[in-house]
Structure formats: C-alpha cells, structure tokens
Design a protein around this nucleic acid. Structure first.
Lengths: 201, 201
DNA sequence: GGGGTAGTTGAAGGTAAATTCAAATGGTCG
DNA sequence: CGACCATTTGAATTTACCTTCAACTACCCC
C-alpha cells in the first residue's frame, strides 16, 4: 500500500500529480487513473480527496500558474537595475525547451480557455499580472532615465507579454529554428526599440 | 436515410463536419458521434470512411488551417499599397470575437502541439508561411521607400505573427479589455515603430 | 496497547463511447 | 430492367472509464 499521508499533504501531492498528468495527457484527455498513477495511488484514493476530478484539475492549473508567476517575481526581486531586470524577465518567461513543464501546462490552457470560463479567467489574470510586472520595470527605467519609451508603458508591456506567450507556443511545438535563445533575441529586438536602450548588460 | 454520396464527396463533407465538431467540443473532447451528427450520418458511416477518428481530425485541422491562410492571401491580393496591406493583414489575423471559429480551431491545436508531433508540424508550418507573408509586405514597402524598417524584416515579421497569435488567445479567452479592436491597435503600435510609418490609411 | 478514525485498496456495478457487422438501400452500369 | 457494389443503418458487442463501497490498514490519542 502507498504510504499514508495527512489530508493536507496528500492534497498537495495530488495537485502535483495532476499537473504532471495534464502535461502528459492533455487537459481534456487526462483521466482519474492517470492522476492516480502519477501519485502512486489508486483511483479510489484520489476520489476520496477530490470527489470531482474537474476541481482537482483547476487547482492544479491554478497552482502551476501561481508557481510560474511567483518564481518570476522572486527572481526579479534579486536585482535592481532596470536593464538587467528587463532582460532577465524576458528570459524567465520563455520555456527552457520544448519539454518545459511550466509552459506546457500553461499552453494546455490556451485552447480550453475558449470553451471553459474558469480557465479563461485564470489565464487572463496571469496575463494581466505579467503585464503589470513588465509595466513596472518599464516605468521604473523610464523614471530613472535609463529607458526612453517609444509609447505608453501599458501598450509596450502588453506586447512584451504577448510575444513571450506566442514564442512559448512555438518552442513547445518544436519550431526547428526558434528555440529559447532565438525567441529571447526576437523579444529583445522589440524591447530595444521599445526602450531606446540597447539592453547590453 | 441520409443522402448517399460518393466516397470523395462524403470525405470532404466529413472533414467539414469534423471541423465544426472540433470547434464545438474541443480537439481532445470531440467524439465520433459528434462528427456523425454534424454530418447528418451515423457513427458507423463515419467509421466506414475514416476507420481512425484521429486521422480525420488531423485532416480537419489541416483543412481549417489552409482555409484560414488562403483567405488571408486572397484578401491581400486585392490591394497593392503596402500600408493598406499591412493594416489589413494585421486585422485579418485576429479573431472577429471570442467565438471566431477559425481562430478557435487554431488555438485548440496550441496545447496539443506540445504532445503531438503532427499538430506541432502543422502549426509550425502555418506560422512560417504567415511570417513569409508579412516579410514580403515589409520588404515591398521598404523597397518602395514607404517603410523605413527598424530591423531586419524577418525579425519584424516573426514578431508580428507572434503578436497576432498571442492576441488571438487573449480574445478567445475573453479578456475583458482586449477585444479585436484593441488587439489590432496594440499590434499596429508595434508595426508603426517597426516600419517608421504612422500607418494612417 | 487498544479503540477509533482517516486513508487506502480492490473489486463490483454502471455508463458512455467506440467498434463490429449483418442487413437494408440506392446508384450505376451492362 | 436487373444485378452488383458502394454506402449507410441500427443493433449487438466490446472497451474504457467512472463510481461506489465494503473491507482493510496504519496511525493517533487516550
């Protein structure tokens, strides 16, 4: 029998297991048994904790998304220079490769968000927070005179996040030419014209 | 009984039916009976023509994608002025609203492309062709002296398509602020700095 | 150390969909 | 006109999954 765990520990495990199962099988194709297998339990045990698989999946998506965002914020907090911040943020928004679990999880949501309002709301809120993150970097750099913005910071920030998103899809779809480094360079090219800074750091 | 049709006519019908079924139910949730219903047939008949539903779905995705791309090309051919072309192309790459079937179909592929190589190839090839489309507009405008490009046309074109893609997702996910008009404006703001043209037409 | 309880199992039962296939049907061509 | 073959149906079968639940622990607390 699998190791017994407290209600709370097990729920955390299950959210992690669900995250992995979603990546492996797709948000709309993942089954109870997949989650159970990832967690090293039987279906019955999963159901004991989450009588509704749908709810577990939403929690898993939510948790994965928060983790992704929090990680970016944490990394940002380690530096102060706006140029470094901007470059670092662009890099951290891209998958490390086609298999990057965080981005693959987010990408699973894209299609489903058109059909499922809950997923739509989750994705939208992540997008908006990421925009705010970029906007604050741009505004700070502008105030310090490091950046000379080519437009209003909201527009620029929205486009930066949009580019990140789109290249995330290209990379996970294994574009033969556009990998993490190339995507970063493409976004940087936009960031350079947007900030009037050559972003060498 | 449903009208009898030739092998070829029926296969064409089924591809269309599958396309509608995918949009209605999601690429990973669509089932044989959905396709049959859309086609006005029974499951057995669908299976007679496509013993493997997966294959039919790939064909449907492919067809939808080609249609989307061809439509853009056709529209493009009706004008010559690079400014008009660029603005028109940006608009035609965005969904008309959250329910736009063509874009929803493409978005359905995004997540699956990470898991399924065939879908990855389909999406990648569409992306590359759209890049080529933008690149030719940019190059033409540049040659005519209408545009003063801020970088190499390949980079700019890749970013334009990436922005389209990303805002397509935002719109289908029902972002409360970013609709078709706002997204077009955001992309245009990039296009302006990219071309050094205010794109008033 | 012995109840009591929370967590887990595994098997049985239920449901929905895919699959198979014999029979019916309608076009086509000789 | 009639035979034949491709297409379609509908029902039976199979498969795959979810759901339920009684039985079985392992752990906690008294």
């Amino acid at each position: 029998m699998a190791q017994r765990k407290s209600r709370n520990d097990r729920r955390i495990d299950l959210i992690e297991a669900a995250r992995r199962a979603i990546i492996r099988h797709g948000i709309d194709r993942v089954q109870l048994s997949h989650v159970a297998e990832e967690a090293g339990l039987t279906s019955g045990a999963v159901l004991y904790h989450y009588p509704d698989l749908g709810e577990l999946l939403v929690e898993a998506q939510h948790a994965g998304m928060e983790r992704f965002y929090e990680q970016r914020l944490r990394q940002l907090a380690t530096v102060t220079d706006p140029v470094t911040k901007l470059v670092m943020t662009i890099r951290s928004g891209l998958p490390t490769g086609p298999l990057d679990p965080d981005v693959r999880l987010l990408n699973e949501l894209g299609g489903a968000a058109g059909r499922n309002r809950v997923y739509g709301v989750l994705l939208t809120s992540l997008y908006d927070r990421q925009v705010a993150m970029y906007q604050s970097i741009l505004d700070t750099g502008s105030a310090l005179g490091v950046f000379r913005l080519s437009g209003d910071s909201l527009t620029l920030a929205r486009n930066l996040v949009a580019l990140e998103d789109a290249y995330g899809y290209r990379i996970t779809a294994r574009h033969p030419v556009i990998g993490p480094a190339e995507a970063a360079e493409l976004i940087l090219s936009y960031a350079r014209t947007a900030t009037g800074n050559d972003l060498a750091h």
